[in-house]
């Protein structure tokens, strides 16, 4: 203990919000590499709809923190064009729902250019997407569309759950020579956590085991990893020993970590905010069913996903539409006790 310098102690306890962590990553990347720039609707003096870009325009100027017209398709295409000609754009889509207007450029162009051109181009762009429900923003401002993009070869899709990972994964994403979509849950922006100073990386494509356990495996990412970790704490008090996996990346997915856990716990539950059917839960379940880990299962897999409904406005309905901590607890109890 006495060997720790004061600065190191400070750094070890330093806490930032998720939004601050992202801003810090952007600042580090822009400081280190002139090719990096941030653009999007109201990212300049306004500081971003969720305050993520904050004061960056004052630090880096309007040439590198660029306010754009309300043109989601256009700005997504501009990111592609800048990326294939030597820049490293970071694009903010104000609410992830609006990415529906930019699907063309992300899915048809960004994801496919390298392949279609026979490997002759790179598309090093990052798209930041504030998403998820819980803010009363209703059906067109609350969706979780990440699974759509995880279906597209050529894209990478990440969903960090903590300030620490948000910073480290965004830095990895900016460095990645491929298009990376980072889904940032709006409810996480104000959550605080330890964030080291300086540049560090959290790799894309690696899940994190947040809690080791023997009785069941619960997989989630983004805010569901947070809710799952909290639920696991309570389950432990009840004598249920849950292993918690924070998926972090959807594409590429770290299936090995999930399979290894299932071989150990023999029970699997997947928790995600996106609509339950045809989503992340289906994919992970199918991957298990196709693998030798299937033989280790002692109970059917449980998918805990969003309800089959557009996100409602009323706060009670809104909560009911996506898995909450109580839902995770109840489902985990049923699964662990064998009455799933």
């Amino acid at each position: 203990m006495s060997t720790l310098t004061e600065a190191a102690v400070e750094s070890a306890v330093r806490e930032l919000t998720y939004a601050e962590a992202i801003r810090e990553a952007l600042a580090i990347a822009m400081e280190a590499d002139e090719r990096v720039f941030l653009f999007g609707e109201d990212v300049g003096v306004y500081g971003g709809a969720f305050g993520v870009s904050g004061d960056l325009v004052h630090r880096f100027g309007t040439e590198r923190v660029i306010d754009t017209p309300i043109s989601e398709l256009g700005i997504a295409g501009a990111a592609v064009g800048a990326a294939i000609t030597g820049m490293k754009p970071v694009l903010e889509i104000q609410f992830s729902d609006f990415v529906t207007l930019a699907m063309e450029q992300i899915v048809n162009q960004a994801a496919k250019i390298r392949f279609m051109f026979g490997g002759k181009a790179k598309v090093p762009m990052v798209v930041r997407l504030p998403g998820g429900s819980g803010t009363g923003a209703a059906a067109q401002h609350s969706q979780s569309l990440e699974a759509w993009f995880a279906h597209v070869p050529g894209l990478k899709v990440i969903q960090p759950s903590s300030p620490h990972d948000a910073k480290g994964m965004l830095l990895s994403a900016i460095d990645d020579p491929n298009p990376v979509l980072i889904f940032e849950h709006k409810l996480l922006y104000k959550t605080k956590g330890h964030v080291p100073e300086g540049d560090y990386r959290v790799p894309i494509g690696k899940a994190a085991v947040r809690r080791e356990g023997r009785d069941l495996t619960i997989v989630g990412s983004s805010i569901m990893a947070v809710r799952t970790a909290a639920a696991a704490q309570k389950l432990a008090e009840e004598g249920i020993d849950a292993e918690v996996i924070d998926l972090r990346s959807l594409r590429p997915i770290d299936f090995d970590t999930i399979a290894a856990s299932v071989r150990k716990t023999h029970r699997l539950m997947v928790v995600y905010e996106g609509v339950k059917t045809m989503g992340i839960g289906a994919e992970i379940s199918a991957m298990i069913a196709e693998s030798d880990a299937f033989d280790f299962l002692d109970a059917p897999i449980v998918r805990l996903g969003g309800a089959e409904v557009p996100l409602p406005y009323n706060p009670v309905l809104e909560k009911a539409a996506v898995p909450q901590e109580e839902d995770i607890l109840a489902a985990a109890r049923r699964l662990a006790r064998g009455d799933a």
Partner: peptide, 27 residues
């Protein structure tokens, strides 16, 4: 596409190149 020759590609999407050109111009 002939990226080395400055041709950033034909496009199967009608109008697909237009927004990309904006990014090229920014670049």
């Amino acid at each position: 596409a002939d990226v080395d020759g400055g041709n950033l590609g034909a496009n199967g999407i009608v109008g697909g190149g237009l927004p990309i050109a904006v990014g090229v111009g920014m670049s």
